[in-house]
Amino acid sequence: MPSIDIRHAHSLPHAKARKAVQEVAEKLAERFGIDYDWDGDTLNFNRSGVDGKIDLAPKNLRVTANLGFLMSAFKGPIEAEIKRVLDERFGA
């Protein structure tokens, strides 16, 4: 079971939604050293202590991540930051 499981509705066209997810991934890579790659409409990401993905669908997206023992202590702040960025990029 994922440590983090967030679903977020959106109304963006597919290309714009994918671009927004890409921009989020680039920001995470820059700030936290996260590696990522696309597999179809799923962006997989990882770094030490975190392994997850963002599944992009036509009307919503889902962020799931497994947090390692040390990172699980920061679950609340991590979820809050993910939700903030999703609201910023995709609207509340």
Score class of each variant (00 low, 15 high):
13 P>N: 06
6 I>A: 12
21 V>I: 15
37 D>Y: 01
70 L>K: 08
22 Q>G: 07
38 W>G: 15
51 D>E: 11
92 A>L: 11
53 K>F: 08
55 D>Y: 00
69 F>H: 06
69 F>G: 02
69 F>M: 14
89 R>L: 02
51 D>A: 13
12 L>H: 12
84 R>Y: 08
68 G>C: 13
54 I>D: 02
27 K>M: 08
24 V>M: 15
30 E>G: 06
9 A>F: 08
62 R>I: 10
43 L>T: 07
37 D>A: 13
77 P>Q: 07
87 D>Q: 03
81 E>G: 02
45 F>T: 02
65 A>D: 09
17 A>T: 11
19 K>H: 12
26 E>R: 09
83 K>D: 11
9 A>P: 12
4 I>W: 04
87 D>R: 08
58 P>C: 12
66 N>F: 04
2 P>G: 08
70 L>V: 15
62 R>E: 03
53 K>P: 02
28 L>V: 08
77 P>S: 07
8 H>Q: 06
38 W>C: 11
91 G>V: 10
54 I>C: 09
74 F>I: 06
16 K>C: 01
56 L>S: 02
27 K>F: 00
40 G>Q: 07
50 V>D: 07
48 S>F: 08
79 E>H: 02
89 R>H: 01
87 D>N: 11
71 M>W: 10
73 A>I: 14
2 P>R: 02
61 L>G: 05
54 I>N: 02
13 P>F: 06
81 E>P: 00
79 E>I: 02
25 A>L: 15
40 G>T: 10
49 G>K: 06
38 W>S: 13
87 D>I: 00
48 S>I: 10
80 A>D: 13
23 E>S: 12
27 K>I: 00
75 K>P: 13
49 G>W: 06
85 V>A: 09
44 N>K: 12
29 A>M: 01
58 P>H: 10
50 V>P: 00
41 D>Q: 13
68 G>F: 12
1 M>F: 10
53 K>H: 14
38 W>N: 11
10 H>Q: 10
35 D>I: 07
41 D>H: 14
64 T>L: 12
63 V>S: 01
13 P>C: 04
49 G>A: 12
38 W>V: 11
79 E>D: 05
78 I>Y: 03
7 R>T: 14
27 K>N: 06
6 I>Y: 05
40 G>S: 11
78 I>R: 03
26 E>M: 04
1 M>L: 15
79 E>M: 13
52 G>H: 04
76 G>E: 05
66 N>I: 05
68 G>A: 14
49 G>E: 11
68 G>Y: 14
26 E>V: 06
88 E>T: 00
21 V>M: 09
75 K>A: 15
3 S>N: 09
35 D>Y: 02
18 R>E: 03
50 V>N: 08
86 L>D: 10
44 N>A: 08
29 A>H: 05
8 H>A: 14
59 K>Y: 01
3 S>L: 04
67 L>H: 04
11 S>F: 01
30 E>M: 07
25 A>I: 08
46 N>T: 12
9 A>E: 15
78 I>A: 04
72 S>E: 05
46 N>M: 05
11 S>W: 00
15 A>D: 15
46 N>Y: 08
45 F>A: 03
58 P>T: 06
44 N>F: 10
20 A>C: 08
10 H>D: 09
64 T>W: 05
